[in-house]
């Protein structure tokens, strides 16, 4: 049994351990590809760990793709511990796929470096933030047993909601990141972040109401907003 030297192995107890923020962090630090290998569905040594992993990895992929990275760089594949040939196949395939994509931030990715790195960092903060984690954490529960009112949701419905949140969170965290650098007006933010101004305004007002931003000063009749340090 022989295979490519391209891969480095990091041991985890169960794919359920894969934290979306950790996966994003790997790409922020320039990793070209991340392959998560775990048990076959229904044969997880930790019962349901790989189902949880699948939800989180799919969400992370969607977020990173929205940030501009080629989603093929993150992959989840399954095998049993007895299938050494399959292991070789998975790592060989994946290595070939990543070689095809080339280094991170190259032609295969929608956004080039160094911009991509900034965007991935924003994606990482969003993936470490409460909203995406909460919704993806509730996903299995909502699909299986439903919410408190016994309303069961379809996977499709939750994925759609998650899709919407990815867009919102990217916008919100981009705004927060930009304002952490320096105070700015809605118009400036809209231009810099390429989000339509009316939407930027709504995000800014929403963030202000929740105490993330406050008005810093008014310049030429235009309010400038600044970031408010958060505790905890």
């Amino acid at each position: 049994m022989q295979y490519t030297t391209d891969i480095r192995v990091i041991r985890i107890m169960c794919t359920g351990r894969m934290d979306p923020a950790v996966m994003a962090d790997a790409f922020v630090h320039g990793l070209d590809g991340l392959l998560v290998l775990g048990c076959l569905f229904g044969e997880c040594h930790y019962v349901s760990g790989n189902f949880n992993a699948r939800h989180k990895i799919n969400m992370t992929k969607e977020m990173l793709a929205y940030a501009g990275m080629n989603p093929g760089r993150l992959s989840f594949r399954n095998l049993s511990s007895a299938e050494s040939e399959l292991f070789v196949k998975h790592v060989t395939d994946f290595s070939a796929e990543i070689r095809e994509l080339g280094p991170l931030g190259g032609e295969a990715d929608r956004v080039p470096l160094p911009k991509l790195r900034e965007k991935l960092e924003i994606a990482r903060t969003a993936l470490a933030g409460p909203k995406l984690r909460w919704v993806v954490g509730k996903k299995p529960v909502f699909i299986d047993t439903g919410n408190k009112y016994q309303e069961v949701f379809t996977e499709h419905e939750i994925n759609r909601t998650l899709g919407g949140i990815v867009v919102d969170e990217m916008a919100t965290h981009s705004i927060l990141a930009a304002l952490q650098n320096k105070p700015a007006s809605v118009k400036e933010l809209a231009k810099e972040l390429e989000i339509p101004a009316p939407e930027t305004l709504k995000y800014v007002l929403g963030l202000k109401r929740r105490g993330f931003l406050e008005m810093e000063s008014v310049k030429d009749h235009t309010p400038l907003y600044k970031y408010v340090e958060q505790e905890g």
Binding site: I12, M13, C14, R17, V22, H29, L31, Y46, N52
Partner: peptide, 28 residues
């Protein structure tokens, strides 16, 4: 020690001994 809880907690309150986020990130 599967780690599902730590990977899920939206407040990052939980961690798995010997498999912490920091340790995994340090490896990468």
């Amino acid at each position: 020690g599967c780690g599902v809880c730590a990977a899920t907690c939206y407040r990052h309150a939980l961690s798995i001994n010997s498999f912490t986020d920091y340790q995994m990130e340090a490896q990468i």
